[in-house]
């Protein structure tokens, strides 16, 4: 065993991974069904469920903003962490490059989501 030991920074990414994993396990399938299948095909829900005025109002509401931000950002961080480990699993060295690519894209998505939510106004 090599000494001295260096503390891992994984808890930050692991916590985001866990939060996103739990959120996507609880709500992911239903969200995909609503936004990707039911609304586009006009099933079960009113035709204007995701109309511009309704979605804008939702995105301008503070709770709505928080919900949208949590879903997009945490899903991204969850996926980034898993994919980062999967790259290691298939033999791609889990070094700085893989880390930058996975977590960098999640960070970019998070910043873009925050920007768009500010741009939609309050």
């Amino acid at each position: 065993m090599k000494r001295p030991l260096k503390r891992s920074n994984a808890p930050i990414f692991w916590a985001l991974f866990g939060a996103g994993g739990m959120l996507s396990a609880l709500l992911g399938p239903m969200l995909v069904f609503i936004t990707g299948i039911a609304v586009p095909l006009g099933l079960l829900l009113p035709a204007d469920t995701m109309s511009y005025p309704k979605m804008l109002a939702f995105a301008q509401n503070l709770i709505g903003k928080g919900f949208i931000f949590a879903i997009i950002a945490l899903f991204l961080w969850h996926a980034a962490h898993r994919i980062f480990h999967s790259l290691h699993d298939i033999g791609i060295h889990a070094g700085r490059g893989a880390r930058l690519l996975c977590y960098g894209l999640a960070m970019l998505g998070t910043v873009l989501a925050a920007y768009a939510l500010l741009a939609t106004g309050f």
């Binding site: 065993m1 090599k2 030991l5 260096k6 503390r7 891992s8 994984a10 808890p11 692991w14 480990h85 699993d89």
Partner: peptide
């Protein structure tokens, strides 16, 4: 805990 927290520690587990 120093070993648990270290780069050799628990966070290698997937």
């Amino acid at each position: 805990m120093q070993l648990v927290n270290a780069e050799e520690g628990v966070f290698n587990c997937t």
